[in-house]
Design a protein around this nucleic acid. Structure first.
Lengths: 331, 331
DNA sequence: CTGAAAGCGCTAACAG
DNA sequence: CTGTTAGCGCTTTCAG
């Protein structure tokens, strides 16, 4: 039904391979015939079938992106950076939401592999076990992780300096005179989050740490638990901004004011953190750039078939001081 | 390099077509050979090449989603709904950001068409001209629009009842005693937005209407302009929530309190609208459901090759009353 | 029930 | 410069 190379060839009175050449590069084809072919192709509304082309060239010009949930503004931003970079290189991006579910993540990987994508970009569900690494490597597909480089595996990675970010948050809170500080974070074993926790703990060794879901709801719940069990706490470092908003919500529900009664620091610096009430003090990480950089690396990996050394890129972070933290000694 | 049907066939000592049958359906193949084939396939880590399969079956099991920007929480939510639905049907979703740019949108459509996606989901840049419609239809690909059904075209559509939503906002503001009311919206010609405007104007015929970008920044700018030129205004209806946040920001920068000095109503009911300060009164529309429904329709369209009648689904909306509007007579 | 053969639409040597 | 010939990996008649 769709018009093919053959149709164009017949109509132009040349061989189909000549049409192919005319369309791809100007390489080795008489200017006149080429012009004629192009004209016919145009007239017939010819659209190359990239799927067929991919079958022979072995490149699909499609990348996979697996995040836990695009609805988290952090991932939306990463996705946008990735999509822009992919687009700039003539690639498409297929979006997958893993919900941090191990099995679902694996199903996506298999599916992407079967579609022969040129590479996968993912924030892995959790630290990769030996078996997992083997499985992934077994697909023989370039993969770049949006997680920290745990040292153990041999994948390329790009992420922010989570450890430092945690440290900055911890130091800041201490500098503001806080003594009883808590850290509310996501599930154990989540690479980036645990790095933040480690950095934070390095600065605030005696902090209370509570694990839960790293969503708005999770932030609410954990804060509820915290306020009940540790009323002495005057400041909390939430593992990301949406959790921080959950904390603020929970505080408000209990009649606590932020920052007068409770100080809170977030992580990510999503757009909304600047317009929340109070504006959230948080650790900024370059989300868009992370997505874009990951794609660049992935594409580079896809170029050279020989497994080159993994590239690891770590972006700097920065504490953005706004109004959700109060100096403890002035209250 | 990858293991193919042929490899499995050789290893299992049968013809490649037998392997194909064994893997696809159990249809017409001896149970014993089938078992053996499956076993060999497993042992060799065989992964079907869906790209090759697609070439012969004519179905790619891939859908395209074109939105203006996933970073708008509204679209992130729609995308998630679409992805979940696609996933449930064994399809992948490729994500495209048009930035409301006509040319970019068309490039994406062409690219998706050349990849032979099974269908495209898009919130069109603007009302479709006759030529545009022709062009789109010319690709012979199922398309469902996330815009209103303008009546003119023959595409399937799914969207919220934008007109009613605008009306609800207008009526609410009037019921609260506001007389001088403004509407801040996006570029002219944007289907959904102009429906909201029409609905609103139906309820508040003498409203001031300002056009600009429908982003946070756009909201800021428009509000600035509004406050300067029409200081008499006591309430504004922003075309979406992120714009509403921009309005709130602009108001705050000028020392105006919301809702005491200025009331604001948004549209979308994105998650943050509930945690903003003050919590935003807004018109709720079912974002996730819209994305999911659109995929369902698209897939149905992709099934039957004969161009069946376009399906049009309109979701209900609801005004969510929170704290960003004050009764004008009590101030 | 299974093998042989054709072909999806395209690229890529290899001859002429 | 251009046509011929193989496939890419898979599904699908059509015989056997």
């Amino acid at each position: 039904m769709a018009v093919t190379l053959k149709d164009v060839a017949r109509e132009a009175g040349v061989d189909l391979s000549t049409v192919s050449r005319s369309l791809s590069g100007s390489y080795g084809v008489h200017e006149e015939t080429r012009k004629r072919v192009l004209e016919v192709a145009e007239r017939l509304h010819y659209r190359p079938n990239r799927i067929a082309r991919g079958l022979v060239t072995g490149r699909s010009h499609t990348l996979g992106l697996i995040v836990s949930d695009v609805r988290n503004p952090f991932f939306a931003e990463v996705a946008r950076g990735a999509e822009d970079a992919a687009c700039a290189h003539g690639c498409d991006l297929v979006l997958c939401n893993s919900d941090l579910d191990q099995a679902k993540q694996m199903r996506y990987i298999v599916s992407l592999a079967e579609k022969r994508v040129d590479g996968i970009l993912m924030n892995s569900v959790s630290a990769l076990g030996k078996a997992q690494q083997q499985a992934l490597a077994g697909f023989g597909m370039p993969i770049v992780l949006l997680n920290r480089a745990s040292g153990a595996h041999s994948f390329s990675t790009v992420c922010a300096d989570n450890y430092l970010g945690g440290q900055l948050a911890g130091r800041y809170l201490k500098a503001k005179g806080h003594i009883r500080i808590a850290h509310l974070t996501g599930p154990r074993g989540h690479g980036n989050l645990s790095d933040r926790a480690r950095g934070f703990l390095n600065a605030v060794p005696d902090a209370v740490v509570l694990h839960g879901r790293h969503t708005f709801q999770g932030g609410c719940e954990l804060a509820g638990k915290l306020l009940e069990r540790h009323p002495e706490v005057t400041a909390v470092f939430a593992a990301n901004d949406v959790m921080a908003f959950g904390v603020m919500r929970a505080a408000a529900e209990r009649g606590l004011r932020v920052p007068q009664d409770l100080s809170v620091v977030g992580f990510d610096n999503i757009e909304f953190s600047g317009i929340a009430h109070p504006p959230l003090t948080t650790v900024h990480q370059p989300k868009y750039e992370i997505g874009a950089a990951a794609v660049e690396i992935l594409l580079r990996l896809a170029e050279k078939q020989n497994g080159s050394a993994p590239e690891r890129r770590i972006f700097g972070v920065e504490l953005i001081e706004r109004d959700s933290v109060q100096d403890c000694r002035t209250r």
